[in-house]
Computed example of a mutant assay.
Amino acid sequence: MTTENTEVQPAEKPAAKFLSAKPREKTVTLDHPFEYDGVEVTTITIRRTTGKEINEFLDRVAAASGETVVPPMVQCSLEVWESMDDDDRYKVEMEMVDFFPRRLRDMAPSVLPASEDASVQ
């Protein structure tokens, strides 16, 4: 007697496709590249985020008790974020401002650096 596995796999959820021609990501070249865990880190990618990602980020920040939380628009691990030369981290943070959603800009205008390109929204 053979037993057949008839378990149905759930279909993959469809992903949103953004139609705007505005840039959704940017690569920042580090002035002080480094190696972490055998991998050379020479660039950091910054990207726009979804509302869900911002909600999850705000929840993590609220629960972090002073610990570092990597902003969701930065594409690197916490370990890479914390290992980065501070001048490079500042450079990434300055570039990141143009990718902040309006909600974050409105929540903390006094702590965000001024955007050089306010048209990217």
Rank of each mutant, 00 (worst) to 15 (best):
T2G: 04
T3N: 14
E4F: 12
E4R: 15
E4D: 13
N5E: 14
N5S: 13
N5A: 09
T6E: 05
T6S: 00
E7H: 14
E7F: 09
V8E: 08
P10S: 03
P14D: 05
P14C: 01
A15L: 12
K17C: 04
F18K: 11
F18E: 10
L19D: 05
L19R: 12
L19N: 02
S20I: 03
S20C: 00
A21L: 15
A21P: 07
K22A: 13
K22C: 02
E25S: 15
K26N: 10
T27Q: 13
T27M: 08
T29P: 00
D31T: 14
P33Y: 10
F34S: 11
F34I: 14
E35R: 14
E35K: 15
Y36R: 13
Y36L: 15
D37C: 07
D37I: 03
G38N: 06
G38M: 10
V39G: 02
V41C: 07
V41T: 12
V41P: 07
T43S: 11
T43Q: 15
T43M: 01
I44K: 02
T45Q: 08
I46E: 03
R47I: 03
R48L: 04
R48A: 07
R48W: 03
T50R: 12
K52F: 00
K52I: 08
I54M: 06
N55T: 10
N55K: 13
E56L: 10
E56Y: 04
L58N: 09
R60Q: 09
V61F: 07
V61E: 05
V61L: 13
A62V: 12
A62W: 04
A62S: 15
S65I: 01
S65M: 11
G66N: 08
G66C: 06
E67L: 09
T68N: 10
T68S: 14
V69A: 04
V70K: 03
V70R: 01
P72Q: 03
M73H: 13
V74I: 14
V74C: 10
Q75T: 04
C76Y: 01
C76T: 04
S77T: 15
S77G: 04
S77Q: 07
L78R: 15
E79G: 03
E79N: 07
V80M: 02
V80I: 15
V80E: 05
V80P: 03
W81D: 00
E82S: 10
E82M: 15
M84W: 06
D85Y: 11
D85R: 09
D85G: 02
D86H: 12
D87I: 03
D87L: 09
R89N: 07
R89F: 04
V92R: 01
V92E: 00
E93H: 10
E93G: 08
E93Q: 09
M94Y: 08
M94H: 07
E95T: 01
M96N: 05
D98M: 09
F99V: 08
F100S: 00
F100N: 07
F100V: 06
P101V: 11
P101W: 02
R102K: 13
R102E: 10
R103D: 00
L104W: 05
R105L: 14
D106L: 12
M107H: 09
A108H: 13
A108C: 13
A108D: 14
V111G: 01
V111I: 12
L112I: 14
P113F: 05
P113E: 09
P113N: 13
A114H: 13
S115A: 13
S115G: 10
S115H: 00
S115P: 06
S115V: 02
E116P: 01
D117Q: 10
S119M: 08
Q121G: 01
